[in-house]
Amino acid sequence: MGRYWRTLRRFWGTALATQLEYQLNVVVELLAVVLSLGGSLLLLSLFFGPGRELGGWNWNQALIVQGFYTVFDGMTTAWLRPNLGAIVTYVREGTLDFVLLKPIDSQFWVSLRTFAPAGLSEVVLGLGLAGWGAHQSGVVLTPPLLVAVLLMLMVAAVILYSLWFLIAATSIWFVKTWNATEVLRAVLASGRYPLEAYPASLRLLFTLVVPVAFLTTVPAEVLLGRASLPLLALGFVLAGGFFAAARGFWLFALRHYTSASS
């Protein structure tokens, strides 16, 4: 365990050093993060007005959902995209061989090798926005509530990671399906808004098939103190199931990996 921890520190230390080589880039990325959040808030505000709600959620409550969406968008930018997006290159160039030969778990290596610091600013901004929304909604943050929210955010992070990883791992067979993560990204964008704002058929899709609901709406409900226990249990079951599926699928895919030009 200690070995993995030390390796992780090295991975991210070098990633940070590399990023700081491109300072102008960092400034542009930060500007993009702020503009993107501003645009999202403007778009969200279009749905609201005096006496208007979105699927039974008022402005402040919808801000929590938007905040959590920003957190997970940041997680995607910071970890999922740079790491899992590179798997297809390893397969095409055959450099996955070198990863598999290392005395460290290959899934750990391909999932956490690098990170993009710009995404972190999005995570921080998102948490701030969710906190502001909760404060305006009159939420009193007690320690048990905080633990519950953090647990649900972790469940959400596991689900998001597993979804991405499942798709990224298919590039062992089909190098060309890498773009499927763009489709996933488009579907996940629906998590910007509370689940109740969508028609019933889409709600079912977003809860069970692509569990977008557990990324943003459910943690927001927990924060507002109105989540039901069975729903939370379902979240844990889904997270466990998706993670086990991702792990199993990776091991299965590796058995079919026959190095470059396969």
């Binding site: 699927g55 488009a186 579907v187 028609p199």
Partner: peptide
């Protein structure tokens, strides 16, 4: 897959058509 990743307008449609706004 790129074509499919352009589904965002449909998601926004389902949102707008049920909203008060």
């Amino acid at each position: 897959l790129w074509a499919l990743s352009g589904v965002l307008p449909f998601i926004m449609l389902s949102l707008w058509s049920g909203s008060d706004a």
